[in-house]
Write a protein that binds this DNA or RNA. Structure first.
Length: 575
RNA sequence: AGUCCGGUGGUGUAAUGGUAGCACAAGGCCCUUUGGAGGCUUUAGUCAAGGUUCAAAUCCUUGCCGGACUACCA
């Protein structure tokens, strides 16, 4: 026994003293460091396209990139907006992305960059490629290019314009730049290999014409560089050492390398791919999330059911819990689906330590203590957070008429029901032991309207008197002292574990959970919640973690969101 | 179909030729004035078949399964 104890103690200590969790990317980096790469100055980057809101999947990338910069002395992580497609990108998204990264707890400071800041240099690089005979202006239409490209099994055909002279290409590219052609009329293409088994190497477009206002460069440009051309060069310009991206870019890596191999750049970054995050019962693609917003399936990008960082924030998630989650799930190269329960676990773990406990009754039923003096009010001392002695205590008003949870009473209870029932005793949390004597029902509806109980004055909480044990403890609020609130119970947005798997012929919106939101408007909360600030988080004892809604709550009408339920052994038993 | 990348308990991961371990989930027990928290505990895994080796999750071969790729998106 003592031996085993010693063992677990030892292993705990070992776990504590280990650095940060490692993964194949961090191992590559520490190897590079050992070999003296860049005098130990690691530079990573988080490169969002400002065309939507960040979600929990991006958090994985943010934690990886910024995490690595925090773990290595002298290292930095850049925030770089990949804004090369003016048709889709907006300043609104830039602002939300910056806010979300900061909220997660990461500092980019001055390292805020935009691919659009490099448009001049990128243009020069393109001209250089033309001069070197490595790029040409192509007249083919979009459809023709697709046709000429072939398929993975059939090699493509060369564009008829592939052998244009350098001079002609230069002139044509200049005319593209000067707006002399319409959108789609011409493209600049890299001259690589139309028979490559890698489709991305079949003379990919690197510049296209888009006569659209750009959110930062306005009307300065009518030609815009493509991702594959932009990303590697932006990395090289910024001195990124390790360019970390998701698995779907693996096939782009030969092109990433090709561009850098054929141009003289200030540095030579390296792309490494890892698996993106998938979460059960969740959709994680900007396109699909956009669809939910536009369909009105949710109230917006920050709907508390959305997996966006703004949604999770409004729901009551803490940045710490998300960061913890991201380090716990690890980084690998294989596709996987992470159990939503994991995210919820790290949330509860964090909130359990930090959230103040409060008594709230969501579905009230009146309970009258028939032997308690009419006008008497007692102040019961309640612990704010049993996990944190420094959180102190507060006083709860206790009186003859109380509200308790409708679910905490059953007329005809099963054996393992530890709560109130006719003739049964329970303890009122921080109060007395009571016994139920009578049930008053509405004669028309049969609905329970009042429970008449008696209390035992000898059993007051904290009185130190020896008292009998009762199996159940329930929460309550005083009718006259409690304050009203609207409580919004949120649940998972989808009923299907992998809603975006559409191989079975279904569309992800078919799996929307019709019970993902339930609004309770007659809730009663203990008076200490008066004046609670938007965003404030609490644990409602025995129910779950909640927060004051940051948008809809007002001092007069509290609106409270359920962040996550408590683990519930009783609910499990019922299943 | 071709190319590339991957396959470790139900789930997420570790073991870098040398004892298959951790976490989540699920079950049980203890404790408890939150059916919370905490403590203890059980179940359960190397895709398959060959080969190399004293020794294979790890290296090799073949097969099977999964993913990515066929935007002037990123």
């Amino acid at each position: 026994m003592s031996n085993r104890q010693a063992n677990t103690e030892a292993s705990k200590r070992e776990a504590d003293s280990k650095p940060e969790s490692s993964d194949f990317i961090r191992e590559i980096i520490s190897k590079d460091l050992q070999q003296g790469m860049d005098e130990g100055k690691i530079v990573t980057r988080f490169p969002p396209e400002p065309n939507g809101y960040l979600h929990i999947g991006h958090a994985k990338s943010i934690c990886l990139n910024f995490g690595i910069s925090e773990e290595n002395t002298g290292a930095v992580c850049h925030l770089r907006f990949d804004d090369t497609n003016p048709a889709k990108e907006e300043t609104e998204y830039v602002d939300s992305i910056k806010e979300d990264v900061k909220w997660l707890g990461f500092e980019f400071g001055e390292k805020e960059f935009y691919a659009s800041d490099y448009f001049d240099r990128l243009h020069e690089y393109a001209v250089q490629l033309i001069r070197d005979g490595k790029a040409f202006v192509c007249d083919l239409t979009k459809a023709e290019i697709a046709e000429y490209r072939g398929t993975p099994t059939v090699p493509g055909k060369n564009s008829p314009n592939r052998e244009r002279s350098v001079e002609e290409n230069l002139t044509l590219f200049d005319k593209m730049k000067n707006g002399e052609f319409a959108d789609g009329e011409k493209t600049l293409r890299a001259k690589i290999d139309m028979s490559s088994p890698n489709m991305h190497m079949r003379d990919p477009a690197i510049y296209r014409i888009r006569k659209t206002l750009h959110h930062r460069t306005g009307d300065k440009w009518v030609i815009y560089p493509m991702y594959d051309f932009t990303h590697c060069l932006s990395d090289a310009i910024e001195g990124i050492t390790h360019s970390l991206c998701t698995l779907e870019f693996e096939v782009h890596r030969p092109l990433y390398d090709w561009v850098l191999d054929h141009l003289s750049t200030p540095s030579r970054p390296r792309q490494i791919e890892f698996a993106r995050l998938n979460l059960s019962y969740t959709a994680l693609s900007k396109r699909k999330l956009l669809q939910l917003v536009e369909n009105g399936d949710v109230s917006g990008w920050n709907d508390p059911r959305m997996p966006t960082l703004s949604g999770l924030r409004r729901r009551g998630y803490t940045p710490e819990s998300i960061r913890k989650f991201c380090t716990q799930i690890g980084v690998t190269k294989f596709n996987s689906v992470t159990d939503l329960a994991r995210l919820e676990h790290s949330l509860r773990e964090d909130l359990n330590k930090s959230a103040h406990r409060v008594m709230a009754v969501l579905k009230p039923v009146k309970l009258i203590l028939t032997n308690y003096p009419e006008d008497q009010v007692e102040e019961m001392e309640a612990v704010n957070n049993p996990e944190d002695p420094d959180a102190g205590t507060r006083l709860l008003p206790f009186s003859r008429e109380l509200f308790i949870e409708r679910d905490d009473f059953m007329e005809d209870p099963p054996k393992k029901f530890f709560r109130l029932a006719p003739g049964r005793e329970v303890r009122l949390r921080y109060g007395y032991i009571i016994q139920c004597n009578a049930v008053v029902k509405n004669p028309d509806t049969g609905e329970i309207e009042e429970l008449h109980c008696t209390y035992d004055p000898e059993t007051k909480s904290g009185s130190g008197k020896p008292t009998r044990k009762v199996k159940g403890t329930i929460h309550w609020v005083s009718v006259q002292h409690s304050i009203p609130a609207e409580v919004r119970l949120y649940d998972r947005l989808f009923t299907k574990e992998n809603p975006t798997d559409e191989k079975d012929g279904t569309v992800f919106t078919e799996h929307l959970n019709s019970d993902s939101l339930a609004i309770l408007s007659k809730c009663r909360i203990e008076p200490s919640m008066k004046g609670a600030l938007p965003g404030a988080r609490f644990q409602f004892e025995r129910i779950g973690y909640f927060c004051v809604d940051s948008i809809d709550s007002t001092p007069d009408q509290l609106v409270i969101n359920r962040t996550v339920t408590l683990r519930d052994a009783w609910a499990k038993r019922k299943r």
